[in-house]
Amino acid sequence: MKSRQLGKTGISVSEIGLGTWQVGGRWGTGFNEPKAQEILEAAIEQGITFFDTADVYEGGKSESAVGALKRKYGSNITMATKCGRRFQPHTTETFSVNGIVQFIEDSLRNTGLEQLDLIQLHCPPTDIYYMPEYFAALEKLQEAGKVGHVGVSVEKVEEALKAIEYPIVSTVQIIVNMFRQRPTELFFREAQKKNIGIIARVPLASGLLTGTITKNTTFAKDDHRFFNRSGAAFDRGETFSGVPLEQGIAAVEILQQRLTSNYNMPLLALRWILMFDAVSTVIPGASRPEQITSNCEASDVPPLSDTEMNVVQEVYKEYIAPYVHQQW
């Protein structure tokens, strides 16, 4: 497993991390603690040192499981968590600085830690990025020793660009994949100028880029890929990266035809993200230990050729960009 710097935090992290939305369950449902521990330990065995969770993943159970891992391995791993999604409805009006402070206290209690390595605002409404009082509050918590570093998890490039204007912000978590390429343009350049750590989430576009989803694939009713395609529960960009399912399936088939590599589609999709030096770590999820092993192989995949990169760009421009590029 290769490592990269997490921006100006100065922390070295595995370039393949682990997103824990579905750890111990299926896309965040049906948490199973022994299964979660098995997956987390499998990640450690594969050399993963960066773990991302949130207070809303299974009502804090995922956060508690990753917190226990952090207590066990200490500074050998980096734990990132997120707060803010508990404000309901998820609007500017329901947000409050006091609420954010309380959520962080709750996360400290959930994890059993005295300090959170990295706390991230969890995809707040766009207006929040224009309210300095939230970032001032996070700075005070850092000064008090309750958080080591501060970051944001965003939906839109606009939000990412605004967030990194605040000196307290060290990392940005954003959707980046073969089907969500806009962040690689202006945002990546600006982030590198300010030494911002970029955490690439939804790297396989909710499974689309594994090449295993077909028009006949069915999803359980409690799976966001069933109920959130139009954004009924949260930003639709989180589901299939906002790409209409049928269009995404067609684009993946074309990619598989044109990319004649010996490596499978998910490994190529992960390696494509790692082609960008601005990225610090990629955080695919896993609901089984064997998925961990498979994802980590991407760290050893050779760089994609110019021809392969051009193929991905061409397919994106023709089949995907019209649906997503200006949306996020």
Rank of each mutant, 00 (worst) to 15 (best):
F135E: 06
A200E: 11
F103V: 05
L121Y: 13
Q142R: 15
T92V: 12
Q256R: 15
L113Q: 14
A278D: 11
L118E: 09
E159K: 07
N216K: 12
E63S: 08
Y166E: 11
Q326L: 05
R86F: 13
T293N: 09
R71P: 02
S96E: 01
I198L: 13
I199P: 02
I128Y: 04
Q37H: 09
L270Q: 05
V101H: 05
V154S: 02
I283V: 15
R229W: 01
A36Y: 08
P302V: 07
I39C: 04
M1E: 06
G28W: 02
V252N: 03
E105N: 15
F135I: 06
A43Q: 02
I249E: 03
G19S: 03
L268F: 09
G30V: 03
Q247L: 04
E165A: 06
K70N: 00
G248H: 06
E38C: 07
L138A: 08
I168L: 03
H122P: 06
Y319S: 11
M131P: 00
Q5H: 12
A250P: 02
H122N: 08
G211R: 07
E158H: 13
P303H: 14
Q115A: 14
K2Q: 15
L138M: 07
T29I: 06
E253N: 15
A160R: 04
Q192W: 01
E143Q: 15
I199C: 03
R225H: 09
V169A: 09
I320T: 01
A298P: 01
A163W: 06
T49P: 07
E165H: 12
R4K: 15
T217N: 12
P244F: 12
A200I: 05
Q88E: 15
G207A: 06
L255V: 04
G99L: 03
L255Q: 05
F219P: 02
A144E: 15
T29F: 13
I283F: 13
L18S: 00
I119P: 00
L274N: 04
K156R: 15
Q46M: 08
T260F: 07
V311Y: 07
T214G: 04
T217C: 10
Q247V: 09
N32W: 06
K162C: 11
V315A: 07
T126M: 12
Q313V: 00
Q291C: 00
E58H: 12
N76F: 01
V324C: 01
T92W: 08
D52T: 01
L121C: 10
G248N: 08
P167I: 02
T91D: 10
Q5R: 14
F87D: 03
R182S: 12
L270D: 02
